[in-house]
Design a protein around this nucleic acid. Structure first.
Lengths: 179, 179
DNA sequence: GTCTATATTCTGATAGAC
DNA sequence: GTCTATCAGAATATAGAC
């Protein structure tokens, strides 16, 4: 069974994604992680420490994911777009942590730390995409499309009727330089 | 001078964008709008009513903006991408209200109302883009790029080095069917 | 390491004067 | 229409037992 510390971070992520920052009281996080509030505060001395813990884990997972983008059998763009689309997030992967942290891109005090962590993730993704797409404009375009999909996931907006991710991907492939 | 009611909504928008939902206490909003808390609560009986007021204004502005997209001299895509980019928001326009509401895409209770309002905006934008881009996949792609730029604005992530919006736009133009 | 109180601060909302 | 109190509830954090 996972350690209490990891259970707390997992519960925090889940609550952030499913119910938003407003619902992530220490009480609620502790309950979802099956620890008491006191137990939670033993591992994370304050709510800020909890946020910091989440950001640290995001950075770790981002590095791992950059490697995954590079070695994706289907190609970097395909891997990136698929994991960005609604439902494409894998437990234990970056996408989940990324979506959770996106919801924190506000909290006045820790705000700068959050934005810094997100900037690192964006930069690592961009570099990984650049390895397949030597054209910088195209790499940026691909990343923006992925971010657009993230935003749709974030807001729960339905996709346009009769359009799927695979159709989008096929179109983007047609813009890639042929090997 | 603007009525107190509008001043309150403007202040609420600004606080949401610049400091996030966590900082939008009734006290803070009232102070920023130069009214007392009691004065604010005269116009908006509760915090939920304040959110509803913001959503109503977003819907009004969205309809106005859809018309602006259609009649943009530079073309629908160019107008949409430019106003989505960091710094491209106009006071009184949709973009500002949209960015403010994006930060609310969590608040458990009013969450569904927020998502509904955002879905309306997305649908109106998409329809307006479709008028220039008859190809649905391309219209969706353009919208996702714009949303990606919104997300960058939201998180304050810097753009990739040596890349500007105009370069991005030029590339997208090359994908448009020639008239 | 984890739990049960308890203290303290903050936030949303009400009441009533002007 | 706008203001100044003031209250009730919730949330963070602490203290100390086990």
């Amino acid at each position: 069974m996972a350690g209490a510390r990891d259970r707390v971070l997992d519960a925090y992520e889940t609550l952030l994604i499913e119910h938003g920052p407003g619902s992530t009281t220490l009480d609620a996080v502790a309950a979802a992680a099956d620890v008491s509030k006191g137990g939670l505060l033993y591992h994370f001395a304050s709510k800020d420490a909890l946020v910091t813990g989440l950001l640290d884990r995001l950075r770790e997972r981002s590095s791992a994911d950059a490697a995954a983008i590079r070695s994706a059998p289907d190609g970097a763009v395909a891997y990136y777009i698929r994991t960005s689309a609604p439902g494409g997030a894998v437990p234990g992967g970056v996408t989940r942590s990324y979506l959770a942290v996106l919801r924190l891109a506000d909290s006045t005090e820790t705000g700068q730390a959050v934005r810094d962590a997100l900037a690192v993730v964006h930069a690592e993704e961009y570099d990984a995409l650049r390895e397949e797409l030597t054209d910088p404009v195209l790499a940026w375009l691909a990343q923006l499309v992925g971010d657009g999909l993230y935003l749709r996931t974030l807001t729960g907006t339905p996709l346009p009727p009769d359009l799927g991710v695979e159709e989008l991907l096929a179109r983007m492939r047609s813009y890639l330089p042929t090997e």
